[in-house]
Amino acid sequence: MHKIKVRINGKDFEHEVEPRLLLVHYIREKARLTGTHVGCDTGNCGACTVLFNGDPVKSCMMIALQANGAQITTIEGLAGNGLHPVQEAFSERFAVQCGYCTPGMILSACSLLQSNPQPNEAEIREAIEGNLCMCTGYQQIVDAIAHAAQKAKGLERRKP
């Protein structure tokens, strides 16, 4: 057993963990943040995407020990006072059906918009290429991310 200390959504967690414990299981079962999902076990589906020191990673592809000292944002850490604009946009554009891919998809989208605030459709599609959605066929998700970018632009413009 090894001791790790992780900051998740601004809160410190400390646990003794087995070396083989996957990060996604740590997040779900030790930190009890169940918005991070498991869909494929092989790093293909992106349902377990979290922001790891700001970058999107697939948490089923890491062991918990690797997160010692890291800062992680999960879907539960995104909303402040009210929903994050990307969360709002997903709802406004019917980008959610069963909701299982949604947390990973939203975090991938947030990461894209951080580095590229006004992406075109091809850039959006490329950014979520590692996130599978079985329900929507992606079109409304792509539109939601474009809508979130537009909303952010609107907010910028309104600033004095």
Binding site: L33, T34, G35, T36, H37, T74, I75, E76, L78, A79, L83, Q87, E88, F90, S91, F94, V96, G99, Y100, T102, P103, I106
Partner: peptide, 14 residues
């Protein structure tokens, strides 16, 4: 959709 808020917040209960 009324169901969306919980899902976008990661509060779905599977």
């Amino acid at each position: 959709r009324k169901e969306d808020v919980k899902f976008v917040m990661g509060k779905g209960a599977y």
